[in-house]
Each structure stands twice: as C-alpha cells, then as structure tokens.
C-alpha cells in the first residue's frame, strides 16, 4: 500500500506540473482526463470491487451537475455548491443503493441504467428550477483571466481525482475492500461469513456516487452551461465501464491508466471523425470485450 501511495503521489505531482508545459488545449485535455479518471475510479468501487454492473454513473454526474448549477443559480458560492452536489449524490446513492442493490445481474444493470433516464426527464419537466430542455446558464466565476479560469478548474479536478484515488486506495486495503471482494466472489457465502452485505454494497455505491456528483458540479461550473441530454448522457456510464475494462477491473492504477488511454484514443483517433465518434467507441468496446475482457493488464501476464 505504501508503494502504491508513493507512486500515486508522484503521478499526481507530475500531472500537477502539466500547466507549465502546455497551452490551453493541453489544460482542457488534462481537466477532461482527470474527470474521466474520477468516473473510472468511482465505478471501480461498485463495478470492480463489489462486482455489480452499475450504469448509474450518468445519473450521479447529471444529478451533481444540476445540484451544483441550481445551488449557484440560487446564490450559493461555487465551492459550497460543489460540496452540496457531492452531498446530494451521496444521499441519492444511499437511497438508490438500498433499493437497487437487492437486484442482481441484468436486473441491477437495467435498473441503474434507467435511473439516469428518469432523472433526465424529471429535470426536463421541472422547468422553473432547472430551465428544462432550454438548459441552465451558470455564473462565470470572477477570475482574472481565461487562462486563470482554465487553471483553476484543472486544479479543482486534480484535487477531486486525487481524493477519489486516495479513497479507493484506502478502501482496497481496509475491511471494506476485503468485504467487497468477498461479495464479488460469492455474495451468499460472504453473508454467511459475517459480512453485512447490504451495508458494504451501499457503502460502495455511495463511494461510486459522491465523487462523480462533485465532478458533475465542477464540470457544470467549468463549461458554464448544461442541458439534460448533455449531463445525463448514458455514455458517461459506458465510458466509465470501458475505461475500467481497459485498465483491468479491481486494480489500483487500472482506472486512471484506462482513463488516460481512453481519452488519448478519443482525442487522437476519432475526435477528428466526429460523425462516427460513437460508432468507433462501439467498435472499441466490442474488440475489448472479445479480445481483452480482463483489461490490458492481462496482456502483461499473458506475455510474461
């Protein structure tokens, strides 16, 4: 654990130096990568460690984005709005977890997938508060310059990613992580051994929600404008899964590695072909599932 923690510190320090090297393009890319990293790390709690195929990331992201945006619209300061978004996602994940984590397999996957749709429609319908389909404009932070703003959101996302990573590392080496691994292997046997499975699963689900909620709120402040189809996009859920699959589910650095690689692909290969963006993403998923279901990490073992 110490070695992993040291490596992680080194990595985050390196990432923190990125603004020195690059221009606003690299800064934007870095911020997006860290956001993806938060999505992937968060999914790892429930999907990788507990083994529940959650598609709820988009729900948490959208909820956080709207909670933060509405709070700011009502006059809350930005930092407070972000914290509020995290709290909203945490409470929502707890309630949702108690209800949905009794389901297994496909049923859980579908129910978690559908939650984002329901939230999106509700946000669409609650026009007074959210602006409905018209979207919502956020106040532009009073910071010195455009560059200063970009820098600010980059470091905000970096801090969040580091926090999420630290939480994951701590969880993996604690009772919680151990219990989740037992659940992932055989839930009823874990129960019989004294693991409070409901509590552990809900805890994992809450951890998978809270950081994504804050990421949504930071994203909303960053781009100044959100609309329901944008922040409740099911692709957030799918990308989170794909990134973890690329890196290897349940591993420590897998999610971050997957996020970096995924974003590189997205940026280099198919952002240039915007028309077929999702199609290429689909192809990537199919190839990944067919040939590398255990992630790129398995390549190392296979060749060794």
């Amino acid at each position: 654990m110490k070695r992993d923690a040291l490596r992680a510190v080194a990595m985050f320090v390196l990432i923190a130096l990125l603004p020195l090297a690059g221009d606003s393009y690299w800064l934007r890319l870095g911020t997006t990568m860290l956001m993806y990293g938060v999505l992937a790390i968060s999914w790892n709690f429930i999907g990788g460690m507990a083994g529940y195929p959650s598609f709820a990331s988009a729900a948490f992201f959208g909820l956080g984005a709207y909670a933060g945006a509405v709070a700011q619209k009502l006059g809350a300061p930005m930092g407070f709005a972000w914290a509020l978004a995290g709290a909203a996602a945490l409470v929502f994940a707890a309630a949702l977890g108690v209800a949905l984590l009794r389901l297994r397999g496909h049923y859980f996957a579908i129910a978690s997938l559908v939650v984002a749709e329901v939230l999106r429609e509700l946000v669409n319908a609650a026009t007074d508060l959210t602006g409905g389909g018209m979207g919502l404009n956020l106040p532009i932070p009073r910071l010195a310059s455009i560059e200063g703003q970009a820098m600010f959101f980059f470091y905000a996302m970096l801090a969040l990613a580091a926090l999420a990573f630290a939480a994951m590392l701590a969880a993996m080496h604690s009772r919680l992580g151990f219990g989740l691994r037992c659940i992932q292997q055989n839930e009823s046997a874990a129960d019989m051994l004294g693991v409070n499975t409901t509590l552990y699963k809900v805890a994992a689900f809450m951890l998978s929600g809270v950081f994504v909620g804050v990421a949504g709120a930071i994203y909303a402040s960053w781009v100044h404008y959100i609309e329901p189809p944008d922040v409740f996009d099911v692709l957030y859920s799918v990308k989170a899964i794909v990134m973890v699959l690329i890196g290897g589910a349940g591993s420590v650095f897998g999610p971050l590695f997957g996020a970096a690689l995924f974003l590189s692909l997205e940026e280099l290969v198919w952002r240039n072909y915007l028309q077929v963006h999702t199609g290429v993403l689909g192809l990537l998923i199919v190839l990944l599932v067919l040939f590398l279901p255990k992630g790129l990490i398995s390549l190392r073992r296979r060749t060794a």
């Binding site: 009772r175 151990f178 691994r181 037992c182 292997q185 055989n186 046997a189 874990a190 004294g194």
Partner: peptide, 19 residues
C-alpha cells in the same frame, strides 16, 4: 463455497475478520 479467486489464507482471514 470458497472465494475461489482468493488464496486459502485470504479465505480464512475473511472468516476471522468478519465473523
């Protein structure tokens, strides 16, 4: 019903820790 992907030691450790 062991946790088959875990080691033998981890299996028993889980029992001691949780139960």
């Amino acid at each position: 019903q062991p946790f088959s992907a875990m080691t033998v030691l981890e299996n028993v450790t889980a029992a001691a820790l949780f139960g």
